[in-house]
Computed example of a mutant assay.
Amino acid sequence: MNIVTTNTITNKMRDELYTIHQEVFGDINHFHQKLIRKTNLFFTLAIIDNEIHGYKIGYPLNEDCFYSWMGAVKPASRNLGIASRLMETQHEWAKNQNYKSIETKTMNRWRQMLLLNIRHGFDVKAVNIDKNGREKILLRKQLNV
Rank of each mutant, 00 (worst) to 15 (best):
M1Q: 04
M1R: 06
N2L: 13
I3V: 14
I3D: 01
T5P: 07
T6R: 09
T6M: 07
N7R: 12
N7H: 11
T8G: 05
N11Q: 15
N11A: 14
K12S: 12
K12F: 05
M13H: 13
R14D: 04
D15L: 05
Y18I: 09
Y18W: 14
T19Q: 10
T19G: 06
T19Y: 07
I20W: 00
I20Q: 02
Q22C: 12
V24R: 03
F25W: 15
G26K: 04
G26W: 03
I28R: 10
I28Y: 06
N29D: 12
N29S: 13
N29Q: 12
H30T: 12
F31D: 02
F31P: 01
L35W: 02
I36F: 05
I36Q: 05
I36C: 06
R37D: 07
N40E: 15
L41F: 03
L41C: 07
L41I: 03
F42R: 04
T44Q: 11
T44R: 04
L45Q: 00
A46G: 10
A46R: 00
I47T: 06
I47C: 06
I48S: 08
I48V: 12
I48L: 12
D49T: 13
E51R: 12
E51K: 14
I52P: 00
H53E: 12
I57L: 00
G58K: 05
G58N: 04
Y59G: 02
Y59R: 05
P60C: 08
L61W: 09
L61K: 13
N62T: 11
N62F: 09
N62P: 10
E63T: 10
E63R: 08
C65P: 06
F66H: 04
Y67N: 02
Y67P: 02
W69I: 03
W69E: 02
W69G: 01
W69R: 03
M70E: 01
K74R: 13
P75W: 09
A76E: 15
A76W: 12
S77I: 08
S77F: 09
S77T: 07
S77V: 08
S77G: 06
N79R: 15
L80F: 13
L80Y: 11
G81F: 03
A83T: 04
A83Y: 01
A83R: 01
S84F: 05
S84V: 13
S84P: 07
R85Y: 05
L86H: 00
L86M: 09
L86Y: 03
H91M: 15
H91P: 01
E92R: 11
E92L: 15
W93M: 09
A94I: 03
N96V: 10
N98F: 07
K100P: 02
S101C: 04
S101P: 00
S101W: 01
I102N: 00
I102V: 14
E103R: 14
E103Y: 05
T104V: 06
T104A: 02
R109E: 15
W110K: 09
W110S: 08
R111A: 14
M113G: 07
L114D: 02
L115I: 08
L115A: 04
L116F: 05
N117D: 11
I118W: 10
I118Y: 11
R119F: 15
G121R: 02
G121S: 08
F122Y: 15
F122P: 06
V127I: 15
N128Y: 13
N128W: 10
K131D: 15
N132Q: 14
R134S: 14
E135W: 07
K136W: 04
I137A: 02
L138W: 07
L139G: 01
R140Y: 03
Q142G: 08
L143Y: 01
N144I: 15
V145H: 13
